[in-house]
Each structure stands twice: as C-alpha cells, then as structure tokens.
C-alpha cells in the first residue's frame, strides 16, 4: 500500500524572461523556477511544501497537474503522465488554488456543487451523499443558497475545499488553504482535512506560510529554495537542523542598558531607551523560564510576550545554512 502518488525525478522548469534593454532590443534571460526536483510522496502521506514566495512552489504544482510542461525530468502523478493523461488525472486530483476560484461567482454554492458533480460524472446518489458529507463537516449548510461572490473569506475557502474534494480525489493539493482565515476557521479546516485523510486515506500536499498548518497536518516537509530541494524530513528535524529561535520581548519597569549578557541568548534590539528589549534564544539550548529568570535578576519585568519561530524564519535559516 506504499505506491507513490507523486513521483518526480530531476524535475526542472525554466522560464524565459524578456527584459527591455534599449529601445528595440530585448535581453533574453532564462530563469530556473524548479531545479532538478526529485521527490516521492506515498499514498496516504501528508506533506508540507514550503519555501519563500517565488521559490518554485506554484510551478511545481502546475507541473504535477499538467498545466505546465517540464523543461526536463520526469513526473508521475497518481501513476499517470499529467500532460498526456490530464483528463484521467483530473478525476484523481483535487486542487485548491489560493487565488483561483472553482465556484461560479453568480451562482448559489449548491448549484456550483451540482455542476461540478456533473463535470466529474458522479452518479446522482453518490453526488448527494458526498455533498451532504462535505456540507456537514465543513459546516456550510447556512450559505448553500448564497452566490459565490457574497461569501466571506472563510466561507469561500471552505466552499472551495468542498468543490475540490467533491469527487473524492486520491490526492488533494492545497495552495495556502488557511491564508487570511481567523483562528476558528483555520482550526475547522484543519480538523476537516485530518478527518478526510483518516476516512478516505487521502494524500495531502499543501503549501503554506502557517507553521500551525504544518504542525497540525503534515508528517513531512519539503523545503524549496530557488527551485532546489533544500530539506526534506520531519518538522522536528527541520527545527533541530536550523535551530530555529524563539523571541522573548520584555517590557521593563525602567530603562536599563541593553541586556547583551543574558546567557545563551542573542540581543535583537531595544526601544524607549531600553524599556522594551527583544532577546532571541534557541529552544534546544535553553528554556523560556531560565531566560526570564536571568532577565528578572537584572530588571523588573512588567510584561512579556514569546514569539514562536515563524516559518519564514525557519526557511530563511535553511537557505542561509545552504550557502
């Protein structure tokens, strides 16, 4: 049961950019968006695909589903050639593109669903059953008769996910599924995707900037940098590899000199003559408690916040460690 749902070997994609140089001449530069990507994702896995904007994530997804032709290398999705067997593949894959809607903006959500059911040639009974399941789990009953354009962001995202999953695809690809959602909506969507995976054995591939998505949903992460695979493995391993830092911000009772001497921390900066100071520390090397104790010994603490390492930061560190 460990067949590969996604398998790429040396997958590469170049773009030709033409930039104006002079009045008539144009420079032709080749930009490599994806560079010899070799990954295998097995059935039932859930994989986070992360990287900075422009790192090649969307280009990879477009090659996986047959929108773009690779410049070099091989790609098989669900055992099919995405270009030659695109239409067959469409039955096996569901994709949620952040900015591109599957819904008809002027039609009630319900009608969009029934059109999609016909597009995927689902039998009536099957379509109804699935629709009811999705409506229940994504809590969409309240707005089924609302046209797409009138949905709130959270409602729309849930409807988009339902639209992509209506035909119960084996592979679901989600491009920034939780972007712009409030905490509750994010939670709801993540729970749904977990349940979907449990019940149907769906394989998930998602791009995200949200650490919470990765923590809750993914067994494995792939990090790309300039089209190259910079890391693949578990999330814990990722944090350990790069030693991602947490940041402690303290507001002090009175201005003090910069706290540059707190053991195993790095002073990031201070504001208001030293009333507010920011310290970074490695979670592997010390604890928030001992850092706080050390700071408390030097000044009276009024207030504090601790920021978890954000994904951008983790990615940036990976990038730095590669160079």
């Amino acid at each position: 049961m460990n067949e590969a749902v996604i398998a790429t070997r040396g997958l590469t994609r170049d773009f030709v950019r033409r930039t104006r140089s002079g009045r008539l001449l144009r420079d032709r530069t080749v930009v490599r968006a994806v560079d010899e990507l070799t990954v295998t994702i097995s059935a039932g896995e859930s994989v986070g695909y992360i990287g900075a904007n422009g790192a090649g994530k969307s280009t990879t997804i477009k090659m996986l589903v047959g929108i773009l032709v690779p410049t070099a290398g091989e790609v098989r999705t669900c055992g099919l050639d995405p270009l030659r067997q695109r239409r067959q593949l469409a039955h096996e894959v569901g994709v949620v593109f952040g900015q591109r809607s599957q819904l008809w903006w002027d039609l009630p959500v319900r009608e969009s669903f029934s059109i999609l059911a016909a597009i995927h040639r689902l039998a009536r009974a099957r379509a109804r059953e699935r629709e009811a399941e999705l409506v229940e789990h994504l809590e969409m009953a309240d707005y089924l008769d609302t046209p797409g354009r009138q949905l709130s962001l959270g409602q729309r995202m849930r409807a988009e996910v339902a639209a992509a999953l209506l035909h119960t695809p084996r592979l679901v690809i989600l491009d920034e599924p939780t972007i712009g959602l409030d905490v509750l909506s994010k939670q709801r969507l993540r729970d749904f995707l977990l349940a979907e995976r449990r019940v149907h054995g769906t394989t998930l591939l998602l791009t995200t900037h949200d650490m919470g998505d990765i923590e809750r949903l993914c067994d494995r992460v792939l990090v790309v940098d300039h089209g190259r695979l910079a890391y693949q493995g578990s999330l814990d391993g990722l944090a350990r590899t790069v030693g991602a830092e947490r940041v402690l911000t303290v507001d002090l009772a009175e201005p003090v000199a910069d706290l540059t001497d707190v053991p195993r921390t790095r002073h990031l900066g201070s504001e208001g003559n030293g009333i507010r100071q920011r310290l970074a520390f490695d979670a592997e090397a010390t604890t928030a408690g001992s850092v706080l104790a050390e700071v408390g010994r030097r000044a009276e603490i009024r207030d504090l916040t601790i920021e978890e390492p954000d994904i951008e930061d983790v990615v940036r560190r990976i990038y730095q460690s590669q160079r």
Binding site: W104, D106, L107, P108, R110, E111, S114, I115, A117, A118, I119, H120, R121, L122, A123, R124, A125, A127, R128
Partner: peptide
C-alpha cells in the same frame, strides 16, 4: 435545485455531455 444533468437513474453515472449541459443550463437560468 440540483442541475438537470443529474436527473437520471440514481446509480448511473451521467453521460459525457452532462457536464456541458449542466454548465450551460445553469448559465441560461442565471
């Protein structure tokens, strides 16, 4: 309110044309 494309035997998958018919008939209604 379900698309007429689905107005067939419950167990039968819709035909190839059903997809186009579903879109068009809903466009006309819209």
């Amino acid at each position: 309110s379900l698309a007429p494309a689905l107005d067939q035997g419950a167990g039968m998958p819709p035909t190839r044309l059903a997809a186009y018919r579903a879109v068009l008939s809903s466009r006309i209604r819209a």
